[in-house]
Design a protein around this nucleic acid. Structure first.
Length: 588
RNA sequence: GCCGGUGUAGCUCAGUGGCAGAGCAGCGGUUUCGUAAACCGCAGGUCAAGGGUUCGACUCCCUUCACCGGCUCCA
C-alpha cells in the first residue's frame, strides 16, 4: 500500500531547459557526480552503483568495504566543496561500447548497466577533474554551478532494488540554486518533523504502541478515540446515504474459508499463524472479502437485488515484515473501511463512478485536496477473461475522465485479479500513502462460485468490486494528524473548548459554562487546577484546543466568556450565547 | 526480511569500567493571579532483556527484542 517510488513521481520536465526544476535536476545530478568523485578519492576501492537526482535532492549508491559513518559524510562534503571551488567544467563525450567496457573495467555495476543497454544506444560519459562516470546527462556547465549542497543521510539499498542482489551503501544529499533555497528546504524538513503523527500522537495523547502488546498494534487513547469515532460516525452516515448496507463479521475464520479464497495459497506469509480450536485451524483475517462474500451467498440472489453494496469497518491482521512498520501508517492490526459491491456488468460504470463521488465527498470533508490518482492495468499473469478486464478498465477510465480527474497509468500494475484505481495522499514529508483503492475482482466470484438469477431465469456471475476509501482508520488518522498538524478542525477536535477559570472562586461558574456547552452538544473541559491562567492557556494551546474560554470576575458577573482562539486571537468577552452561535456556525 | 543507527525516570535528553543525573510532567505545600511556563519541596530507575569478559559492567563483547532512517515487500 505504501508507495515507495516517490522518485518516479518527480518526473522532470526537460522541455524547458531553463525552468527552475530543470536547473535543479541538472545541478543535483551534477552534485551526485561530485559526491561520487569525493567518495572514490576517500575509498578508492568503492564500486559505483547509480546516482540519480530525486524530487528533493540526489543519491549515489556504492559498494564499499565498510559502511559509511557520519564522519565520512563530513569528509566527503568537505572534498565536494573543494571540487566546487575548483570550478571544474563538466565535459561530455560519446564513446563506443568497447571503450566504455575498457574505461569501466573495474566497475562491475557500470559494466552491468552497459551490457543491459540496447546495442543501438549511444553511450556517453561525463568528466570533471579526474572523475568520469557513465551518464546521459544533462549536467550544469561546471562544478561552480552547484550553489548550495548538503549531504543528508546514509542508508542501505539493494542493487537495482532487488533484495537478492548485493546491498549497497546509499548517500542521500540535496542541492539548491541558492543558500536560501537550501535553508528553506531544511526548514521544511524540520516543520515536517514537528507534524510527524508519531510525535503529535504522543503529545496530544491520541494513541500509543507498546512493546508489551506487540509491534504494529495500536491502542487508541480517549482523545484519539474521540477523533476516530467521529470519523467512523461520519463514515457510517455517508455510507447509509449512498445506499450501502453495513455489516459485521468475525476476526477469525476456519482454514477452509481461506483455502477457498486462495489466501492460504497466495497470502499466507502475511497471515498470523493459525489458532487450533477443536482440532480445527482458524486464521486471523487479513481481509474482509470472504466474509462479505458469505453475506452475498447466504441467499439465492436475484438480478433485482443488484447492485448490492456491503460495507464494514473491518479489523484485519497482517504479519507485515518487521522493518516496514511505521507509526499509524503501516501496522499489523488495522481497521479497513471496506466494502464489496456485487453488480451486473451494465452497472459497473455507474458503481465505479459512485465510489469516486463518495471518495471525493469524504476526502473533501476532511480537507484533502491534494492527492495523486493511479489507474493500474492488467499484469502479465492474471485471472479472468481479457474482455472482462477491458470492460472493467474502460469503466474505471471513463469514470475518471467524466470527472475530469488527472491520473497516471500504471501499465501492468493491477492486481492479478483485476484492474484498480488507487488514490494516494501525502504525509508531512511528502511520502505518499495509499488510502483509497477501487479494485475489480475476477478471482473470488469464481472461487466462491457467486451467481445470481438473471432476467432470463439463468444463473449469471456478478461483477465484484472491492473498495476502501479511507483505506484504514489507522493510516487515515495518521495522515489526518499530519495534514492538520494536530490542530483538528472544530468538528473533529477531541476538546472543542477549554474553560479556564482565573482563580479558584471562578470554578463554579466555569463548570456551569462547561455544562451549558455540553448540553448544546459541544465537547468542553474545565482546567480547574490551582495554576495561573497563563499556564492553562499555554497548555490548552499546546493541546491545540480550538477555543479557550477565560472566565474571571467580569465574565461571571455578565454571564460571558473571554474567548481566545487557538490561532492566537483574543476575541475579548462575549455573552455565552454569542459564543454558542459562533461555534454552531463554524460547524456548518 | 536486509543495511546502518538508537534503546538511561511518564516525556526530552546528559553521563561513566568503581554511589545513576537534569529539565519538563507527576505528587505535597505556598500563591488566587486577566491571555503561551509563579515559588518551595518530595518522589520517581532491574540504565530494553538475556548471556559473557572483569575484582567490579549502565559502560566492553555476544544474542534477542523494540524503535529510527532507508531498501525490499505490500492479495
Amino acid at each position: 500500500m505504501q508507495d515507495d517510488s516517490m522518485l518516479d513521481h518527480g518526473a522532470i520536465d526537460h522541455s524547458d531547459a531553463n525552468s527552475t526544476e530543470a536547473l535543479r535536476h541538472r545541478m543535483r545530478h551534477s552534485a551526485a557526480h561530485v559526491m561520487a568523485d569525493a567518495v572514490l578519492r576517500i575509498f578508492p576501492e568503492a564500486k559505483m552503483g547509480i546516482g540519480p537526482p530525486t524530487q528533493d535532492g540526489f543519491y549515489y549508491d556504492f559498494d564499499v568495504s565498510r559502511p559509511f559513518t557520519p564522519e565520512d559524510l563530513e569528509e566527503i562534503e568537505a572534498l565536494m566543496r573543494e571540487t566546487i571551488s575548483a570550478r571544474q567544467p563538466f565535459l561530455r563525450e560519446e564513446i563506443s561500447r568497447g571503450e566504455a567496457v575498457e574505461l569501466f573495467a573495474d566497475q562491475p555495476y557500470k559494466l552491468e548497466i552497459i551490457s543491459d543497454l540496447p546495442d543501438e544506444t549511444t553511450l556517453s560519459i561525463y568528466r570533471h577533474g579526474g572523475f568520469v562516470d557513465l551518464c546521459q546527462g544533462p549536467h550544469v556547465d561546471g562544478t561552480a554551478d552547484i550553489q548550495a549542497v548538503k549531504l543528508l543521510n546514509i542508508a542501505g539499498a539493494y542493487w537495482r532494488g532487488d533484495e537478492h542482489r548485493p546491498m549497497l551503501q546509499r548517500i542521500y544529499g540535496t542541492a539548491w540554486e541558492s543558500r536560501d533555497a537550501l535553508d528553506d528546504f531544511l526548514n521544511r524538513l524540520e516543520e515536517a518533523e514537528r507534524r510527524d503523527h508519531r510525535t503529535l500522537g504522543r503529545q496530544l495523547g491520541l494513541y500509543s504502541i507498546h512493546e508489551e502488546i506487540g509491534p504494529g498494534l495500536i491502542v487508541w487513547h480517549p482523545k484519539g478515540g474521540v477523533v476516530r469515532s467521529l470519523v467512523e460516525d461520519y463514515w457510517r452516515d455517508i455510507h447509509y446515504r449512498h445506499d450501502y448496507s453495513i455489516v459485521y463479521s468475525p476476526h477469525i475464520g476456519r482454514a477452509q474459508l481461506w483455502q477457498t479464497s486462495g489466501h492460504l495459497a497466495h497470502y499466507r506469509e502475511s497471515m498470523y499463524a493459525p489458532l487450533e480450536v477443536d482440532e480445527q485451524e482458524y486464521f486471523l483475517k487479513p481481509m474482509n472479502c470472504p466474509f462479505h462474500i458469505m453475506v452475498y451467498r447466504s441467499a439465492l440472489r436475484s438480478y433485482r437485488e443488484l447492485p448490492m453494496r456491503i460495507a464494514e469497518l473491518g479489523t484485519v491482521y497482517r504479519y507485515e515484515r518487521s522493518g516496514v512498520l511505521h507509526g499509524l501508517m503501516r501496522v499489523r492490526g488495522f481497521t479497513q473501511d471496506d466494502a464489496h459491491i456485487f453488480c451486473l456488468p451494465e452497472q459497473v460504470e455507474e458503481e465505479v463512478g459512485g465510489v469516486l463521488d463518495l471518495t471525493f465527498e469524504l476526502l473533501d470533508a476532511f480537507g484533502f485536496s491534494d492527492y495523486s490518482i493511479f489507474l493500474s492495468t492488467r499484469p502479465d499473469s492474471y485471472a479472468g477473461e481479457p474482455e472482462m478486464w477491458d470492460h472493467a478498465t474502460e469503466s474505471l477510465r471513463r469514470a475518471l475522465e467524466q470527472r475530469s480527474l488527472k491520473y497516471d497509468i500504471d501499465e501492468g500494475g493491477g492486481a492479478f485479479y483485476g484492474p484498480k484505481v488507487d488514490i494516494k495522499i501525502q504525509d508531512a514529508l511528502g511520502r505518499e500513502w495509499q488510502c483509497t483503492t477501487v479494485q475489480f475482482d475476477f478471482n473470488l466470484p469464481e472461487r466462491f462460485d457467486l451467481t445470481f438469477m438473471d432476467a432470463e431465469g439463468g444463473r449469471s456471475r456478478p461483477y465484484m468490486v472491492h473498495r476502501a476509501i479511507l483505506g484504514s482508520l489507522e493510516r487515515f488518522l495518521g495522515v489526518l494528524i499530519e495534514h492538520y498538524a494536530g490542530a483538528f478542525p472544530l468538528w473533529l477536535a477531541p476538546t472543542q473548548a477549554m474553560v479556564i477559570p482565573i482563580a479558584d472562586r471562578h470554578q463554579e461558574y466555569a463548570e456551569s459554562v462547561k455544562t451549558k456547552l455540553e448540553s448544546e452538544g459541544f465537547r468542553a473541559e474545565v482546567d480547574g487546577r490551582s495554576e495561573r491562567m497563563n499556564l492553562k492557556i499555554r497548555n490548552a494551546q499546546l493541546q491545540k484546543v480550538p477555543y479557550m474560554l477565560v472566565v474571571g470576575d467580569r465574565e461571571q458577573e455578565d454571564g460571558a466568556v473571554a474567548v481566545r482562539t487557538r490561532e492566537g486571537g483574543n476575541l475579548g468577552a462575549m455573552p455565552l450565547d454569542d459564543l454558542l452561535a459562533r461555534l454552531a456556525e463554524e460547524l456548518e
